[in-house]
Write a protein that binds this DNA or RNA. Structure first.
Lengths: 357, 357
DNA sequence: ATTCTCAGCGAAAACGTTTTCGTGTTGACA
DNA sequence: TGTCAACACGAAAACGTTTTCGCTGAGAAT
């Protein structure tokens, strides 16, 4: 077991000073060609690599970014991570991930654990519990300590930072208009409770699309599902709710669901009730995940482009980090004048498959 | 913007030395009660938190573990991460993730990026390309530098380290025996090429189960799919292959697939060919992901317990890390005598759903 | 011969901790 | 009054870097 070699060891071995070694390895012209050659050869031989931690301490930056998300076993979120990791790596950064598990407390604990020097900035999506409590002090506290945050998808206007969101509103409009244009007269909406911002926006899009086409929305055609934190366990409850919903609204000929799961469950229920898709009922979901692709029939969905979101978020954060550097180098105008925060909107695409005509 | 406060600043402000502050904050009895009170109050007021990087440098450990996996948009892998993150957090560790994207080179780059002080140890699953090349020098190099590795799922005997694997072999036996016991006479296998170790093991289980029941395996009933790195793109190719396979083997009445995707695709093809499930054909998959749960009919699968794997892997790694500490504290017997590496086998469960009788 | 210049290198500080070891002051005790 | 603990605190090293500055010697210039 050969331990990692340090500058000091090389220096001692070659009987020069630490500074000489450091300079030789960075090809400083202060050092003679002879010594440089000798030192570089020795370093290569012993496979010298500078210690990241020491560098982080010296440079006061870690070159790693913290991701904080509610859940990782989730197609959308893992897609975003992939996007973040991609550009982070390209630009020389590492990513460290924390999971809030939709819990307010875990979100705070995780933030504090990372905010003490471990990372240079956050990319995060707010947990449901935090959204429910509407308590965002930990975000603002982190920001005011000089650590940049980029929020994605589940964002909130109370926190001033860069944001990346998908255009839920017009995505929903696209979906509903598609249903209308293929002849649906009675379009149902399956959505979540209002406190999840994306649920609300998608609902608004649904309403807007209907009104645009002079269809008066019918409250009976809107099903708000209580997603009791753990969707997986309550699958049968979901099925029952949707079944009752269909039974008491026999005229439904189109369904727009705010996520994949609701959509495929709706299809399953429809089939159970003897309705065929897309002949009797057309269905469109949101989030283009595995379920949509492999359901039978395959599901027409609004694609969120999670990877793109991740990429944009990472660029946003890293841009800000490196801009910070420049400012520090220049002169200490420390009173930040142009704290201009951007919000990037990712357009959705309607991916047409076999659940629509 | 109030920057992070350090020991030095507190010391200057309170007109004491840095050491006094440090000791006071750790309740050392060297410091008088008065000063301790004063310092702690001040620290709380300014929300002092020790800088992780400085601690890492001093203690020569980072309290973070590196995860290196081929792909994150993948139910099994993200489940494992969830398990790792869970116990890592419980035991005071952070996780930093790198994605190899199934590439040999990216695997190496990622390892080198993290191995230089950023982490205390690795938990990883080998990329397909590495498996294909059978070049494992980077793993052994990392280990010989004193950095522990725990491998999971895709492991390899050429590297000496702790491992966590699922019992692919007997999991497959369970699945195939289930098919046999429900009356299947001609059981097909849909699998991958042999170089993916799990594919090989599951194939062996299939053969073993047949022989156990005095059924002679039929090579025609085995379909080896070339999973050309990107499964998503080649969905129709997969469908075609399976369709041809079914057509040329009309007697098939049971299918065992080594993953979810093959299984649901098989079901889709079967339905297309007018065969109903589970009446004409029964199907069992491997990996209990979203597809299995929400397919129609829902799919009977062999569950891998990814989260449990992650938890066990994390425990294994952290145990070894903290054992290292103790050894260093005691005395320098540095010649490691009992390098005993464990391999933990996670048993599988057969989750019976509607694709079997 | 004296000063100047420059090449080549080392010392030391800094990043933020913890910890060991010393040091000065106080009070008790002989 | 002199000695000695005990108490309360500070100085400094160490973790591994990078970088600024200063120093030394040799050759060039005056």
């Amino acid at each position: 077991m050969k331990r990692k070699v340090t500058l000091k060891q090389i220096a001692r071995e070659l009987d020069v000073s630490i500074s000489t070694v450091s300079k030789a390895l960075s090809n400083s012209k202060e050092i003679s060609e002879d010594t440089t050659q000798k030192i570089q050869a020795f370093a290569k031989l012993y496979n010298y690599r500078p210690n990241n931690i020491a560098l982080s301490l010296k440079n006061r930056k870690t070159k790693t970014i913290g991701i904080l998300i509610p859940e990782i076993v989730h197609h959308f979120f893992s897609t975003v991570i992939r996007g973040i990791e991609l550009v982070a790596n390209q630009r020389g950064y590492n990513v460290i991930v924390g999971l809030s598990n939709e819990s307010f407390t875990k979100e705070i604990i995780n933030m504090e654990m990372l905010a003490n020097g471990s990372i240079d900035g956050f990319i995060l999506s707010i947990s449901k519990e935090t959204l429910l409590k509407q308590d965002y002090h930990h975000f603002n506290a982190t920001i005011s300590q000089g650590m940049p945050i980029v929020m994605f998808d589940r964002v909130v206007s109370e926190v001033d930072c860069d944001k990346v969101i998908v255009d839920d509103f017009s995505g929903s409009i696209k979906a509903v208009k598609k249903l209308i244009s293929t002849g649906c007269k009675h379009i149902a909406l399956i959505t979540t409770m209002d406190y999840v911002s994306v649920g609300k926006l998608r609902t608004q899009g649904y309403l807007e699309a209907l009104q645009d086409s002079k269809i008066t929305p019918d409250a009976n055609l809107i099903l708000k599902v209580e997603d009791a934190l753990n969707v997986e366990g309550h699958l049968d409850i979901l099925e029952n709710e949707i079944e009752q919903f269909f039974k008491s609204n026999a005229k439904i000929d189109g369904v727009f669901a705010v996520n994949e799961l609701y959509a495929v469950t709706a299809m399953k229920v429809a089939r159970k009730l003897g309705l065929s898709i897309p002949e009797h009922i057309q269905v469109i979901g949101f989030t283009d995940g595995v379920l949509s692709k492999h359901a039978t029939p395959s599901l027409t969905t609004v694609s969120q482009h999670g990877q793109k979101m991740g990429e944009q978020a990472a660029h946003l954060l890293i841009d800000r980090l490196e801009l910070q550097d420049d400012k520090n180098d220049d002169f200490m105008l420390d009173e930040e004048p142009n704290e201009q925060f951007k919000t990037i909107v990712i357009e959705t695409d309607l991916i047409e498959r076999d659940s629509t005509r």
